[in-house]
Every structure is written in C-alpha cells, then in structure tokens.
Design a protein around this nucleic acid. Structure first.
Lengths: 191, 191
DNA sequence: TGAGTAAACTAACAATTGTTAGTTAAATAA
DNA sequence: TTATTTAACTAACAATTGTTAGTTTACTCA
C-alpha cells in the first residue's frame, strides 16, 4: 500500500522539520535525521528522494496553505479590520499546526533549489494581497495614514515569528491569542 | 602593528556576516568566505582562530551593545512610553549599524559553543528588562492591561526583524522610521 | 642593507557529507 | 505455501569540510 510509505515518509518529514527548527537545514545531516528515527541514513532513501526533497515538501505545503487562506480572505466582502482579524487567525492556526515547519519557511527557503522561484512567487503574492488590504483600510479611513510598507513589515514579522513563541505556552488558548494579538497589533498598547 | 591585523580581521568578519546573512552560518564554508575575500581558505587563519571565532565575535559584540543600550534606558527616570521610544530607537540604530550581523544574532546563536551560555544570559536579561518596563506601564495605567508576555513577543519580534527590512529602503530616514514604528507599535494602526 | 613581520601561498590531513548499490529480514497477498 | 512488497541493513563512493604545517613574497623600520 502506498499508504504505509506515505506514513513513514510523513514521519521522516515531521522529525526532519523538528531538527531543522533546532539547528537549521544545513546543520542537520542525514545521519542526524536517521539517528532520530532510530534507523541508518541509507534507509531514509527508501522513503524520500533527497534531503532537498524533504525541505521542498515542508516549505511548499505551508506556503500553499497560506496562499489558500489568503485567497478566502481576499474573496470575502468583509471590511479591512475584519480581514486583518482573519489574517491573524490564519497565522495563529497555521503556525500552531506547523510549529516546526514554520522555522524552515522563515529561515531555510534560500536552500530550496528547484522550488525556490515558486516559493518566492507565493510569498510575493501573499505580501501584495496583505498590502492591498492595508491600503484599502487607509483609503477608507479605517486605518491611520502611515506608510503601508512599514505597517506590513511590522505586523507580518510578528505573525511570521509566532512559531517561536506558541510552543512555550501550553496553557494557551488559540482563539484568545488571536484576539490579544488583534488588540495589540491593530489597536495598540497605548491606553 | 596590531592595527593592520585588526583591520584585516574586521574585514573578514564583515564579509563573513554578509555571507552568514545570505545562507546561514552552517552553509557558508571557509572556502566561500576566502573566495569572497579574494584569497585562499588557509590564509584566513592568519587573522582568525576558527570559523566559530568569527561567529562569536559577530554575535557577542552586538548582544553586548544591546545590553549597554538597555542599561542606559533602565537607569533613566523617563516614563514607560518614553522608555519604549528609546528601545525602538536603540533597535533601529543597532540594526542599521549591523544589518548583516543581526541575522547571525537571530538565526545562528545556537551554533555558538563556548559563548552560547553567555549569549543566552544576555538575551534573557534583556527580555526581562523589557518585560519589566511593560509591566510598569500596565501598573501605572499608561498601557492597556494585556498579558505583557504577548506584548513583549509582538514588539520584540518586529524589532528583531528590522535587519531584514531596513536595507530595502535606501531613502529611509532612521529617525522617521523610529517614529513611525513607535506610532504603529504603541498607538496601533486603528483610526 | 638587513631583520623582522604581515599576509599570502601550496599541499595535505582526517572527518564528515549526501547518496548509491546490493542484500536481507519480516510482513502481506496470492 | 509461494511470491511480492516494505523497510531495514552493510559497505562504499566521491566530494567537501575545517584546519594545520611549512613556505614564499613583499613591505616596514632600524
């Protein structure tokens, strides 16, 4: 059954993502990964094509999930601030579901070879969609008139770093986190 | 003269930091670095002790600069929001002065060996000082009553990622950037 | 001029890298 | 039972890694 192979492959990719988060893609050897799996390095190749193949799978699947999420938000008729709330929820959800993989997405995309250009297109499109939402908010008067590029940078880097922080809080309610982040990012911390 | 050695050593460290930013510490070989310097790999060792020595120098010097900056801010009698303004200015200044090195500080500290514990102490102290300033602001009623941990995470990750973004804007006035960031991070983007 | 030094070089090293080839043991399907 | 598949193994490879040893070139200063 292809199913069993896929399960084992998924397991390898999950463990690999964990190691990539701890040390970065380049510092993790196939022998490290194999040891963590309790097998020999050569055995990994029964399940995956190459080390880079693992990185491809990790990064592209998450990048496409963000693309899909943004597509839904874009298509809705909600106003700017409601869209921002949904973007925050999207990041909280995907980051909590891919705590390990988000590290590769943020820090190791430059080690992609075949898929690097595709990844960059997805990322650029995502940022453009995000920027447009902010610009609409400024135009409509919902948001303050500040350079949207700085807004985008500020909010997006916070959301992109969630993976570093979510696992530290076991008592964390994700919906509550989304709301707190909305408050801080959109309404500020000033009283 | 020690001066000439130091100059050449500084040059190596600067180029190394640039390469580390592009590919990460582990993916940069001593031959890559030498090629970028126009010399052979073995020649590097007339100036530096080891690859790790380069990383130590890059990371620790910046981490200590942040520690020094925070010490001054802590010691002042300014109120919470004024301290926040100064912290933002500190990050903008040090990030613009160390665009390459900030990447190592953020992403490659785990490859430190001798100095890793020292680095972690500096970082933990910095975060604690930052958190206390936020907690004082909440207590005094200057800031909204939201978990300081989430505030800290949100603001600090934005500031820590400045190095990714500052170089893209050549027309950027750093004082203006600090003010815009203060507005976004403290007062929010909601109108 | 001669001594000392800074900074490059060539050659080599032992260890580690990702990966392939071929084999074997156990589970599954006929 | 027999045949097939899954998933591990051993052994080895060519390339690359950080680093050392020893040498050479060119500049500085007494």
């Amino acid at each position: 059954m292809t199913n069993k192979i896929e399960n084992r492959k998924s397991e390898i990719i999950r463990i690999a993502a964990k190691l990539f988060k701890e040390k970065g893609y380049s510092a993790v050897t196939m022998r490290d990964l194999a040891a963590e799996m309790g097998i020999k390095a050569a055995s990994l190749y029964n399940h995956i094509r190459s080390k880079e193949d693992i990185l491809n799978t990790i990064i592209i699947s998450i990048a496409e999930a963000f693309t899909d999420g943004m597509k839904l938000i874009k298509a809705s008729n909600d106003n700017c601030k409601e869209k921002l709330r949904q973007i925050i929820e999207l990041h909280v959800r995907l980051s909590s579901q891919n705590i390990y993989g988000m590290a590769s997405l943020n820090n190791d995309w430059m080690h992609l070879q075949n898929q690097q250009e595709y990844y960059k297109v997805l990322r650029a499109n995502y940022e453009n969609d995000f920027r447009k939402i902010l610009e609409e908010g400024i135009t409509s008067g919902d948001l303050i008139n500040v350079k949207p590029e700085v807004m985008l940078f500020s909010i997006l880097t916070t959301l992109r770093s969630l993976y570093l922080w979510i696992p530290k809080k076991e008592d964390l309610d994700l919906q509550e986190l989304s709301e707190t982040l909305y408050q801080i990012l959109v309404e500020g911390i000033n009283k």
